[in-house]
Design a protein around this nucleic acid. Structure first.
Length: 814
RNA sequence: GCCGAAGUGGCGGAAUGGCAGACGCGGCAGUCUCAAAAACUGCUGGGGGGCAACUCCCGUGCCGGUUCGAGUCCGGCCUUCGGCACCA
């Protein structure tokens, strides 16, 4: 009577034992090399779904592997707990955000434990608790102190659904990243972080072992472009300003300028507009302010604009250039004004056509002979109609003309960035209050560090009014000025939750530390993070903010590193059975708890790693997971096989088994290093298939079998930790398998003795030979030429021979 | 529109320029069973020929190229997914 594999019984038992023994609690000292294995912490949205498991289980397997390879592994877990959904739940269901969040934390913590991951729970962080957000506020003050946090009136992205402003990074195609509502523009006084100061530093990514795709997304988001600011002298009488400055990357096209376009919000517009056009101009400005972000961003939309009646002069030619306003020019980029060169810019071309403006060619396309252009020519070419610069290649002319402008003080080389400063204030309740007080006497006053945290009041009216709920809590708002003691008012906005996730990996290092946000000694040991894993959706949000944050606190002298995450790996997305993204409306959502209850956590873990390459994601399959169940049951019965009498004499099967074992160790190790869990599992399945044959035939001595099983269990331990631990114990090994060293493979033992040599004629396979691996080229050639299956294809000729050792002989005849 | 990734059996997928389809799912057949389920064993890319051991041809989105040899490298397309999208 054999005992059956019963994950429901053994998994909770081992989880309790590991917990009681503190098996995964990691020390901050010791000789083992430290390895910080970090996984993006989950937002406290409710239940863990299968996507969380897909992110967490393989990461845990890798962390466990590193532990067995002799590292001291820090693998922590926590909760991203501030944010809008908690507050929306409060509005909808009347549950306090704190209650809602902490209930979710309790539930998710229980689910996370069922995963059997090797988290050091003693380091858990929850970002909405005062002992955490005290330090989030502290960091805000440091940013303020160092001139990296500032308050400014600016047009902001306003989500009418969430009733708050959003950072640019949170607007996707003109819609709110979270709720999908169309984003509007509002002029508001907001807090910003000066991320643009670090634009160039953030572009420096050579030292990062990150997916190129993510680096590229960050580069594109930062959008550095080098160009020239050119001053166009104004010929309008009575204007205070004497020039309009434009930014261009194409100074070479300046002779082709036929008009200038200012953003509708440009400060010069009011001064320069002539009285007879004022009415039309004001109407246009009003209309463009009305537009939603989506309308304004549409590139399909026909270009529109209004002439404001004023002119400036082309600095090269002195030619009179009319000034327009148009909503395709953004106030927030460059100087808020552009020189329009219709012949060589598609937008300007469309605009010029519509308003019948001239389109002179100044960059000749190849083979151009003076004809009018049908569309803008935006490539490089030869300079024409450009005075002294004629005949130059346009690339060179760009430099010469920039020199010309700089020499005369009419312009200077500058760099513009697409990235904007990070808008961090939110008009919502469930976030860390911004620790600032406004005093009628002293102005903006930071809350002294000794008075942190600025506690979020228990109750606030969670009405979506568009104003911060904290505004309506008098006990919160009214406070004496920390500087002069006069009656003052607190800032009532809270911080973007990305500020909380900017530093959580530092808090894990010493989550109980109270002399600062983190223990500097622990930071020296563990940071930077050795391996970070998580979704690619954070490419230009969390991952960019955290890099900025780290560079900033590095410059403040708080840490000695300037990048938080050395290696990054992005897992893909787990899809539903229909190969579609999981969603409630599609009804294809998979609940991990059901499968854990039925099949066990180990099975779910292994299946998620088996569906495909981790970075590519994969589809869930209720039948597919049965394959893992079958396999683990086979492993169970193999490990617990009854002893058999050792056959006499030396067995070739024993050599074969040893060879396969060492080959498998090698494959598993190499696959784990590269996060190729799917092929690692295939290798382990092949090994167990072979072991099943060996058991059937009883072809190896019992001792060799025992040794093979021991190795198999060690190889399985990172992936299916409970099963491996149980079988480790049942086969009489000392607790715990998770404290054992990973098996070591030897090249000599992994070497094949016999290999299959393919014989091709003209690249087509005609025969296969079993030969010793040590065969020489000459022997192989001779053998191949002598084969009956090969001869007919050679037509009696002496072929040219291509020999690839241990692989093939290709016989080439004409 | 621009940038990036990916297209391989019925399905998920494997393959340092060297036997395409490992491993698993599903399917078919068999063993066990009164029967079914489970488990186990075998077969399973397509087409042709042979009683048969077997054997031949075709086949990695499409068209070309490089190479003794291409799923893999190069050029051009098509499709899907992801990112950015009036950034001057």
């Amino acid at each position: 009577m054999t005992i059956a594999y019963n994950p429901q019984e053994l998994e909770p038992r081992w989880q309790a034992r590991w917990e009681a023994d503190g098996l995964y609690r990691v020390r901050d000292d010791g000789d083992k090399p430290p390895w910080y294995a970090l996984t993006m912490f989950p937002y406290t949205s409710g239940d863990l779904h299968i996507g969380h498991w897909f992110a967490l289980a393989p990461a845990d397997t890798h962390a466990r592997y590193m532990r067995m390879k002799g590292h001291s592994v820090l693998h922590p877990m926590g909760f991203d707990a501030f944010g809008l959904p908690a507050e929306n739940a409060a509005i909808k269901q009347g549950i306090h955000p704190h209650t809602w969040t902490m209930d979710n934390v309790a539930r998710m913590r229980r689910q996370l434990r069922s995963l059997g991951a090797s988290y050091d729970w003693s380091r858990e962080v929850i970002t909405c608790l005062p002992e955490y957000y005290k330090w989030t506020q502290w960091f805000f003050l440091q940013f303020y102190k160092h001139g990296l946090a500032y308050r400014a009136q600016a047009p902001a992205n306003w989500c009418p659904q969430c009733q708050t402003v959003l950072a640019n990074e949170q607007v996707v195609e003109g819609r709110c990243e979270r709720c999908g509502a169309a984003v509007a523009r509002r002029d508001l006084e907001q807090w910003f972080f000066r991320i643009t100061k670090y634009a160039d530093a953030l572009l420096e990514m050579d030292s990062l072992q990150w997916p190129e795709r993510i680096k590229l997304m960050q580069r594109n988001w930062i959008g550095r472009s080098a160009g020239v600011e050119i001053a166009f002298p104004l010929s309008a009488p009575g204007a205070a300003e004497k020039e309009v400055r434009v930014f261009t990357t194409r100074a070479d096209t300046t002779y082709g300028v036929t008009f200038l376009v200012l953003a509708p919000e440009h400060p010069l517009v009011a001064q320069l507009t002539v009285p007879e056009r004022r009415r039309e101009v004001e109407d246009y400005i009003a209309a463009s302010r009305q537009q939603s972000e989506i309308q304004r961003l549409s590139t399909e939309k026909e270009k529109s604009g209004v002439f404001i009646g004023a002119y400036c002069a082309n600095p090269f030619t002195g030619q009179r250039v009319p000034l327009f306003i148009a909503d395709y020019v953004l106030m927030s980029y460059g100087t808020g004004a552009v020189m329009a060169v219709p012949a060589h810019d598609t937008r300007d071309f469309a605009f010029a056509q519509k308003y019948s403006l001239p389109i002179p060619v100044v960059i000749a396309p190849p083979g151009w002979s003076g004809q009018e252009l049908k569309e803008a020519y935006t490539e490089e070419g030869t300079m024409v109609n450009s005075g002294p610069f004629n005949g130059l290649p346009s690339g060179e002319a760009t430099e010469r003309m920039a020199d010309w402008l700089e020499e005369r003080g009419l312009g200077q080389r500058t760099v513009s960035y697409r990235i904007r400063d990070w808008l961090v204030s939110r008009q919502r309740y469930w976030g860390a209050p911004i620790p600032i007080v406004y005093c009628p006497q002293c102005g903006t006053v930071p809350v002294p560090e000794s008075e942190l945290p600025v506690l979020l009041p228990q109750d606030a009216p969670f009405r979506p009014t568009g104003e911060s709920p904290l505004k309506y809590v008098p006990a919160f708002v009214h406070t004496p000025c920390p500087r002069c003691g006069a009656a003052a008012q607190r800032e009532t906005d809270t911080m973007d939750t990305f500020m909380c996730s900017n530093w959580y990996y530092l808090r894990y290092l010493s989550s109980q530390y109270d002399k600062g946000p983190f223990d500097p000694q622990a930071a020296r040991r563990w940071m930077p993070v050795a391996q970070y894993t998580g979704g690619a959706e954070h490419a230009v949000m969390h991952l960019l903010y955290a890099r900025f944050f780290t560079k900033a606190i590095h410059d403040m002298g708080l840490v000695d590193f300037s990048e938080p995450f050395l290696r990054l790996f992005n897992q893909g997305i787990i899809l539903g059975e229909d190969h579609e993204k999981m969603s409630k409306s599609r009804g294809n959502v998979v609940n991990p708890d059901d499968y854990v209850a039925r099949l066990g956590a180990d099975t779910v873990r292994a299946y998620l790693m088996f569906v495909g390459p981790w970075e590519q994601g994969g589809s869930w399959s209720a039948t597919g997971i049965q394959g893992i169940t079958r396999w683990l049951n086979r492993v169970w019965s193999l490990a617990l096989a009854a002893p058999w009498p050792t056959p006499p004499g030396h067995s070739p099967a024993e050599d074969e088994l040893r060879r396969l074992l060492h080959q498998t160790i090698k494959r598993v190790e190499q696959d784990l290093e590269r996060f190729r869990f799917n092929t690692m599992l295939a290798a382990l399945m092949e090994l167990s298939n072979h072991l099943a044959e060996v058991r059937e035939a009883r072809s190896v001595p019992w001792a060799a079998w025992r040794e093979a099983i021991k190795t198999l269990l060690l190889l399985l331990a990172p992936t299916v930790p409970h099963l491996a631990e149980e079988l480790w114990e049942r086969t009489g090994q000392p607790y715990s398998i998770h404290q054992q060293a990973f098996p070591v493979w030897e090249a000599a033992l992994a070497q094949d003795e016999m290999v299959t040599l393919v014989v091709q004629v003209n690249g087509k396979v005609r025969d296969r030979l079993q030969v010793p691996a040590s065969i020489t080229a000459a022997e192989a050639q001779e053998l191949a030429l002598g084969r009956d299956k090969v001869k007919p294809y050679l037509g009696g000729q002496a072929p040219q021979v291509i020999y690839v050792p241990k692989r093939l002989v290709n016989l080439v005849v004409k």
